[in-house]
Design a protein around this nucleic acid. Structure first.
Length: 573
RNA sequence: GACUCCGUAGCUCAGCUGGUAGAGCAGUUGACUCUUAAUCAACGGGUCGAGGGUUCGAGCCCCUCCGGGGUCACCA
């Protein structure tokens, strides 16, 4: 990037950088800077009676400077928060040379610079706990101005709120919006809590392939890629279910994985193309057992994060206290539509849909139709955590048939705030049944359902060796994080949500300009004058361009030797 | 994918019926030894998202495109 592309403030900062170097100050020193405390520790533990913290060393970002002649206040922000600094000229410059204060601190340091300080803690006349600075070291110079967010009594002024900039430049969001950092700390605590919960029970955390030759375990459109050496297509996983169950076949009795899954589908407030799912499989258990474990786990997370089971989400309060409500899908549909789906065939269900105004199309099988009715008429009603049980067999090809009714499966989903959060089964371990269900999926696929599952013959083979009765559960970590942090968009719980790439304004390359015989320095000048493309250049008269160039050179004090009129004419021919 | 709103200085935003681009903060220079959205004075800072059109004249009106938000649709 040429200097001509920089804003005034960036130029000033680069200039300061140069001056610091001339003064013998390395703006990016290599050595370790050993801190002995943090802002949070001081603010929580400083006691004027005992006068502790009399020899502190800390580091962070300079966020504000209030200069009053020979004394100044500033703010230092580290990971744990902000603390006020008091800087006195004659104390950081005890000798004759006052340049560290007058030049470096007052002029050459900027908001956003990373500094280290030593000093002692005291309380100002206004009653604010502060650090009296004795020495100050520049640790890293910041060349771009930060968004300036001011705060008074908890109210923010000029907050950095543009979602596009916040997501694209998350580092800025994290620097100036401390509440954002809190969301991601909570997200990690959710995951840590879950991991501890499973490890306490002796389950094994495992890793399974993300690149899969057959994208199984769910119905979704995968991303496809290609492996050169094997010369085969590979898919980014849409689920890890089939691999985890192979591990149960292999003899592990409890396995789980925090998995990044990828689905090549639409993006909105609750969908990102890559997302995190925790799946767990435990041998010799059924879905009743899994329901209890799920509610225990979620209650524990709510308590760990909020100290209570009640969590505010938007304008609602959701109570994660055990036990959660339970209702079968059949009863739920009966309750909200009056229709009894039990024993109805596909044609009857289609007729029922017409009656209650649920749209269905030709490609949908019985399972999808029922799913459509539930999604349309029931799902949204479940704000408080509710287990929906016993889904129709057609929509659950990996789930064991219900012990009391072969039309149903032993499956539950946990609904919270009108959305699916968990999905769990008594896993299907009858290999012959499993193959049959896969073949049914194939028929759906032929009918036009582009989400029907692929057949994974190795998975069927593994079941043929025998898988113990097993219950499995998957939970969407992003959606759980949204609930637990009261975030209305998935982008707010992903550090780097997927965005369309930024596009630079179209311009011809420097080489193309230089090919016309234009010296490199003048190419930069032309760009600054908004001649981005050769075609633009060809449209102006040589005399005008000549005048403009010389004028620009003079006005901006570039100090370049002006080109001659002849030279300019040659460029344009 | 449809509809809708938005894109103006480093940040947050004004900009009337089309008539020479504004404010606060940030920045620069100066004043100031306990301030805290520090204060006071002066000054600088803009391809108005991009391209085209209408017009004597476009930040504003029209079209296309780019990026983003929201709503809906799709989505195990």
């Amino acid at each position: 990037m040429s200097n001509l592309d920089l804003s005034e403030q960036e130029l000033i900062r680069r200039n300061s950088l140069q001056k610091l170097r001339e003064m013998g100050i390395d703006p990016y020193p290599a050595n370790e800077f050993k801190i002995n405390t943090s802002t949070k520790q001081i603010l929580e533990q400083y006691d004027p009676e005992t006068n502790n913290f009399q020899d502190v060393t800390m580091a962070g970002r300079l966020m504000n400077q209030r200069i009053m002649g020979k004394a100044s206040f500033a703010e230092l922000q580290d990971e744990s928060g902000k603390i006020q600094l008091y800087v006195n000229r004659d104390e950081i410059c005890p000798g004759e040379d006052k340049s560290l204060y007058n030049d470096v601190f007052k002029k050459l340091l900027d908001i956003g610079d990373i500094i280290g300080i030593t000093g002692y803690v005291f309380i100002t006349q206004m009653g604010e706990t502060s650090v009296h600075v004795k020495t100050m070291t520049l640790l890293s110079k910041s060349l771009r101005p930060l968004p300036v967010v001011k705060e008074k009594d908890g109210a923010l002024f000029d907050a950095f709120t543009d979602p596009e900039q916040r997501y694209r430049q998350r580092y800025l969001d994290l620097i100036v919006n401390p509440q954002v950092r809190e969301v991601f700390v909570k997200r990690t605590r959710i995951i840590n809590n879950m991991r501890e919960f499973f490890n306490e029970k002796g389950y094994l955390e495992v890793e399974t392939p993300i690149l899969q030759p057959i994208p199984g375990g769910a119905a979704a459109r995968p991303f496809i890629t290609h492996h050169n050496a094997l010369n085969i297509p590979l898919y980014l996983r849409i689920a890890n279910e089939l691999y985890l169950k192979r591990l149960i076949v292999g003899g592990f009795e409890g396995v789980y994985e925090f998995a990044k899954d990828f689905r090549n589908e639409g993006m909105d407030r609750t969908h990102n193309p890559e997302f995190t799912v925790m799946e767990i499989y435990v041998a010799y258990k059924d879905y009743n057992w899994m329901m209890e474990m799920t509610e225990e786990m979620i209650e524990r997370i709510a308590l760990a994060l909020h100290g209570t089971t009640e969590v505010t989400v938007g304008d609602k309060v959701i109570d994660f206290k055990r036990p959660f409500k339970r209702i079968t899908m059949t009863d739920s549909i009966k309750e909200f539509t009056g229709i009894d789906i039990l024993g109805k065939d596909e044609a009857e269900l289609r007729a029922a849909c017409k009656e209650i105004g649920v749209e269905v199309d030709e490609t949908m099988g019985k399972g999808k139709i029922i799913d459509e009715i539930f999604g349309e008429k029931c799902e949204g009603h479940y704000i408080q955590p509710t287990f929906i049980l016993d889904y129709p067999v057609e929509m659950s090809p990996l789930c064991k048939k219900h012990r009391d009714n072969p039309d149903l499966t032993e499956r539950f989903e946990l609904m919270v705030n009108g959305k699916e959060l968990c999905n769990a089964y008594s896993e299907l371990n009858d290999p012959i049944d499993q193959l049959g269900r896969f073949q049914d999926q194939l028929k759906l696929s032929e009918k036009g359902d582009n989400e029907a599952m692929f057949i994974d013959m190795d998975f069927v083979r593994s079941l043929e060796y025998g898988m113990p009765p097993t219950s499995g559960m998957g939970i969407g970590i992003d959606r759980l994080a949204m609930l637990m942090t009261n975030s209305s968009s998935i982008q707010d719980v992903l550090l780097f949500p997927q965005m369309k790439p930024e596009k630079r304004t179209e311009e011809d390359s420097a080489e193309m300009f230089e090919a016309l015989g234009i010296p490199t320095v003048w190419v930069e000048v032309l760009r600054k004058m908004n001649y981005r493309k050769i075609t633009q250049l060809k449209e102006v008269k040589a005399s005008k361009l000549f005048n403009d160039l010389c004028g620009f050179n003079k006005k901006n004090q570039l100090g370049l030797p002006n080109p001659s009129m002849d030279e300019v004419t040659k460029w344009l021919n």
